[in-house]
Write a protein that binds this DNA or RNA. Structure first.
Length: 563
RNA sequence: CGGGGUGUAGCGCAGUGGUUUAGCGCGCCUGCCUUGGGAGCAGGAGGUCGGUGGUUCAAAUCCACUCACCCCGACCA
């Protein structure tokens, strides 16, 4: 490809809306342009990277026996009503009506469509297992799009779905995906690891996410520095730092207007871990108490996992009715007929401070079991710095990461709600056992940029680079002729090469070549004129070698075939 | 949805009631010249100052409303 025929609108200045490295460089290097919040156009260079990623994804999906589909974006509401997600997806679902007033949505994911296809067409156990996948645009009306394509409202996903006759089969399909994903991210040149994950809207089956650590990543991940434990922060388990309290006397103290942990702890001059946060929840109209130590936050995801999706925080009115006090002054002592669940940090501990169920008063010396009955001790807190690993007591690190993939065991959730069954050997009909797996293609692109960029711009991993080589002639006459020959030779070898044939000064060409991150640059300049040697520059290593044409060609050929 | 911020030329910015044509840098166009890290000279094009309504003799500038975008939080496959 010649630069003059391609469209690469690079920018000199930093676009002010871009804060993260990936966002800034995607705009500067001319990979994408924004149309609206969370809506991006992919320009030729960015699209080429995405296609390279898609090729890798396809190859590995095909290798595990996947077959490629192309499913519709427009989807009638009825199948979503069958699965229950017309409601549970909420505002994130883009909804529209056709001319006859029928409800449709733009598919945010395709479980319903796949399950519908399966119930129409899968008849016998003989047709299972199946691995169906597609690479396609998804639509989600994110409350807050972020970091350009990392959280967009329209994005490209490889989604696959497995169908098996039983749990063993599901495990096999799931493991096949784990292996395929490992290969895909490795081939894309990413530094990544998998973590235990939460299913969210998908359900409660086994689930893992593939994470690429990077400062601007919006997911928080907990990783043990001495064993293999890794989990998404929202569901991570950890041992809290332990403290002892000598204050065992249950006593009411006046705390006028002091509601929050910070206010109460500074007013009473005690550390926040002495406080007991009393949180009233409502689970299917039944009030329940959840107790979290003052120096921790409640982990909503864990609470949902344990109590089910129906659980929610009680309203101010419900709090007043149940506890006869306002939020900030409520506590578990003296309440009848309410189930009390305490975080494991309270197990066999004593001497806490919590609300007295009387406005402007707290109780000190509160001790579980002595002062109130705990129904169950459960891990319900959000881990934080200082906690230790529950498996090996090792030090935990908390890092930011971009989630590039997610694999998920659905089980029978959709096949039961939507009636997708298969006939067994003995003539019975059973629900298909399903799995669902996603990869965000733009996120692979963004995390590769984040991981390898330097002060000069992008450094693409060879495998997904839009071009492997850029040939830069340093004038627009005789050296351009020589460069054109080199370019043609490399093309004949099947190497993707970009020729910077613009009439620009060397500085401009070098800066742009660095910015768009082509792994190898061949400079045709004075040295070529004098000694017939070209310069081969390694973008990532920042190393230059001078080679004859033949040697350069051989070197490039070797590097590109190695991949 | 809460908090904060920004909208003036393609990009980055200045101008915050009154020099009758709204500036600067970069980019862009034309010509000359130049070619190893964003060259130089000369000439030129490009803006209903996000939008609507108001106040005023006079509005980019003041007021109200509104829209868009960014960041933090809430939320989030």
């Amino acid at each position: 490809m010649r630069w003059s025929n391609f469209f690469i609108p690079t920018m000199r200045e930093n676009p002010k809306e871009a804060e993260t490295t990936a966002h800034r460089l995607m705009l500067k290097a001319g990979l994408v342009r924004m149309l609206g919040a969370g809506i991006y156009s992919y320009l030729p260079l960015g699209w080429k990277v995405l296609q390279n990623i898609a090729t890798i994804v396809r190859e590995e999906m095909n290798r595990i026996g996947g077959v490629e589909f192309f499913l519709p974006v427009l989807s009638p509401s009825d199948i979503w009503e069958e699965s229950g997600r017309w409601d549970s997806f909420g505002d994130e679902l883009f909804r529209l009506k056709d001319r006859k007033g029928r409800s449709l949505c733009l598919s945010p994911t395709h479980e319903e469509i796949i399950t519908h296809l399966a119930r129409q067409n899968i008849k016998s156990y003989k047709e299972l297992p199946q691995i169906w996948y597609q690479i396609q645009t998804k639509f989600r009306d994110e409350p807050r799009p972020r970091s350009a394509v990392v959280r967009a409202r329209q994005f490209i996903m490889k989604d696959s779905y497995t169908m098996d006759t039983d749990e063993d089969g599901l495990n096999r399909s799931y493991n096949l995906h784990f292996e395929a994903y490992t290969k895909i991210f490795t081939r894309c040149g990413l530094d990544f690891f998998s973590v235990e994950a939460s299913g969210g809207v998908m359900g409660t089956g086994k689930s893992e996410e593939f994470m690429v650590p990077c400062a601007s990543g919006e997911d928080r991940v907990v990783r043990c520095t001495s064993c293999n434990y890794r989990a998404n922060l929202v569901i991570s388990d950890s041992k809290p730092v332990e403290f002892k309290s000598e204050d065992l006397n249950l006593k009411e103290v006046s705390t006028p207007g002091k509601k929050t942990v910070e206010e109460v702890s500074s007013f009473l001059k005690v550390p926040s871990h002495r406080l007991m946060k009393s949180l009233l929840y409502t689970n299917n109209n039944k009030p329940i108490f959840i107790l979290i130590r003052g120096d921790y936050e409640a982990a909503e995801e864990k609470i949902k996992r344990h109590f089910g999706e129906a659980i929610r925080q009680a309203t101010e009115e419900e709090i007043l009715n149940t506890c006869k006090a306002d939020a900030g002054f409520i506590g578990p002592v003296g309440l009848e007929n309410i189930e009390i669940y305490a975080d494991t940090a309270f197990c066999k501990k004593h001497g806490f401070i919590t609300g007295a169920n009387k406005n402007n008063y707290h109780l000190t010396g509160v001790t579980p079991e002595r002062d109130f009955k705990v129904k169950e001790y459960i891990d319900l807190k959000l881990s934080h710095r200082g906690d230790r690993c529950i498996h090996c007591n090792g030090e935990l690190e908390f890092i930011n990461a971009i989630e590039v993939g997610h694999i998920f065991q659905l089980g029978k959730k959709y096949s039961i709600s939507m009636g997708a069954t298969f006939g067994t050997k003995d003539g019975a009909r059973l629900p298909i056992v399903m799995g669902s797996y996603g990869i965000g293609l733009e996120r692979i692109m963004a995390s590769a940029i984040e991981t390898f960029a330097d002060s000069d711009g992008i450094c693409w991993p060879l495998s997904i680079a839009p071009f492997k080589v850029i040939v830069v002639p340093l004038d627009s006459k005789e050296l351009l002729e020589a460069a054109l020959n080199i370019y043609k030779k490399l093309l004949q070898e099947g190497i993707e090469v970009l020729l910077d044939d613009r009439d620009q000064t060397p500085g401009v060409k070098f800066k742009d070549a660095d910015l768009i991150g082509i792994p190898f640059r061949i400079t045709v300049g004075e040295r070529y004129r004098e000694k017939n040697k070209v310069e081969l520059y390694d973008r990532r290593e920042k190393k230059t070698v001078y080679l004859s044409l033949e040697d350069m060609q051989r070197r490039i050929g070797e590097i590109c075939s190695r991949e």
